[in-house]
Simulated assay, not measured.
Amino acid sequence: MSEKYTPADVASHKNDENGLWIIIDSGVYDVTKFVDEHPGGSKILKRVAGKDASKQFWKYHNDSVLKKYSPKLKIGEVKDAAKL
């Protein structure tokens, strides 16, 4: 997987019209089609859409959850910001 996204790219995907993307660690995940399947409810994913949800994710999940859903939901990685 070689797609690279900026945090601004992810931030533009925070509603049903544009899709729901989140960042977990450095991975970018498209949860648009998963939102209704999420065991914790859709509100939680909609609240963190377009943002880095790492802190919230790790608070309630372990590594096995990420491994299980990454093949289906991961669409790329966050680009390193330009160093000035």
Rank of each mutant, 00 (worst) to 15 (best):
K43R: 12
G27M: 02
N62K: 09
H13K: 06
G19I: 04
D36V: 13
I44V: 13
D9P: 08
D63K: 13
G27R: 03
I75P: 05
V48Y: 14
K74L: 06
K68E: 14
P39G: 06
S70A: 14
L84E: 11
K14P: 01
K43V: 11
K51P: 02
D16M: 03
V10C: 07
N62Q: 09
H38D: 03
V35F: 02
K74R: 14
G27W: 01
G40C: 13
L45F: 11
D9F: 08
W58A: 03
A53T: 10
E3K: 04
K59H: 15
G50C: 14
E37P: 07
S64I: 13
S2A: 12
M1C: 02
I23P: 04
S42E: 15
D30N: 15
I44H: 03
K46P: 00
V31H: 02
V65N: 07
I24C: 02
K43H: 08
A11W: 05
V31T: 06
G40V: 14
K51W: 03
S12G: 07
E77N: 08
K14Y: 02
P39N: 02
K68V: 13
I44S: 04
A49C: 10
Y69M: 10
M1H: 03
L20H: 12
T32M: 05
G50P: 14
L84I: 09
G41T: 15
E17W: 01
K43W: 09
Y29G: 02
K72I: 07
D16T: 06
I75F: 06
L45G: 08
D36Y: 13
A53P: 08
D9C: 10
V28M: 06
T32Q: 05
K74V: 04
I24D: 00
Y69R: 05
K74H: 07
V28Y: 04
D63L: 11
V78E: 08
I44N: 03
D25N: 00
N18K: 12
A81D: 08
Y69D: 05
D9Q: 09
H61K: 07
L73F: 10
L73Q: 11
Y29W: 07
S2F: 06
G41Y: 15
D52G: 10
Y5A: 01
S64G: 12
D25V: 00
K79Y: 02
G76Q: 11
N15L: 00
D16V: 05
D63A: 13
I22Y: 01
G41D: 15
L84D: 09
Y69S: 03
K67H: 08
K46W: 00
E37W: 10
N15Y: 01
